[in-house]
């Protein structure tokens, strides 16, 4: 069985997506983390574009445009600005050693593929084989949020999770309706603004962005 060129390209970009996901999981420096996120978003844009061209789904072009503007340019730029203002140069500390995290990530990927198998068989889209990768992307981002200590990397994890969701939507059903996508895009943007304000407040209150200080908020 031969896979058409577009399908091969999509599989390639899916592989890239997963690779970048693991890279993010392993990356210690915040600056590189942001760049990796931008790269992942760019791969996402490319894969969506290929799906749009090969299936002639017009509304996907709008998604491509929105994603590109928002996730490749605007949000990474905002994040860069934040860390410049907050003076966050140091490396990311993790709760669990990086190699262990990678192993956990592999387990999650296997789980995701196992989960996606029956759904992929039902789905008739050219992109159906990538659903497992999309779910893996979501779970890896979740894992990243759990293992990181700094608020900024948690936010990047959150955004990466959204990337995974978006990829799942395109791979399973050629994308969500445009209205839903617009809504999500707006949500992500608003979330960024709120997180930004939040960062400054956390730092003002605790003199640090380390989330362990927030444990004091617990009621005894």
């Amino acid at each position: 069985m031969t896979i058409p060129l577009s399908g091969q390209l999509i599989n390639l970009s899916a592989a890239f997506l997963l690779l970048v996901g693991f890279a993010m999981l392993a990356q210690r420096r915040i600056l590189s983390l942001i760049n990796l996120f931008a790269m992942q978003s760019f791969v996402l844009v490319l894969s969506t574009l290929i799906v749009a061209i090969s299936t002639h789904q017009h509304h996907l072009y709008y998604s491509v445009g929105i994603t590109f503007v928002l996730k490749v340019i605007l949000i990474p730029w905002l994040l860069h600005r934040f860390i410049r203002k907050l003076n966050l140069k140091w490396d990311v500390e993790t709760h669990i050693a990086i190699p262990t995290t990678m192993l956990l990530g592999i387990v999650l990927v296997i789980f995701a593929f196992n989960l996606a198998q029956p759904i992929s068989q039902l789905s008739g889209t050219v992109t159906r084989h990538t659903l497992g990768i999309a779910i893996a992307g979501v779970l890896l981002a979740f894992l990243m949020m759990i293992t990181r200590r700094k608020a900024v990397s948690q936010v990047i994890g959150f955004l990466a999770m959204e990337n995974g969701l978006f990829f799942a939507a395109t791979s399973a059903t050629y994308g969500m309706p445009l209205v839903v996508e617009l809504g999500i895009a707006l949500d992500v943007l608003v979330a960024m603004v709120i997180f930004g304000i939040f960062f400054f407040h956390i730092r003002e209150a605790f003199d640090s962005l380390d989330l362990k200080h927030m444990e004091q908020l617990k009621e005894d």
Binding site: F142, L143, M145
Partner: peptide, 16 residues
């Protein structure tokens, strides 16, 4: 626990 990571872990475990 008062730790965000633990709460996130709960979410992940529930999800899985």
């Amino acid at each position: 626990q008062g730790r965000i990571h633990v709460y996130l872990l709960y979410s992940l475990v529930t999800l899985i």
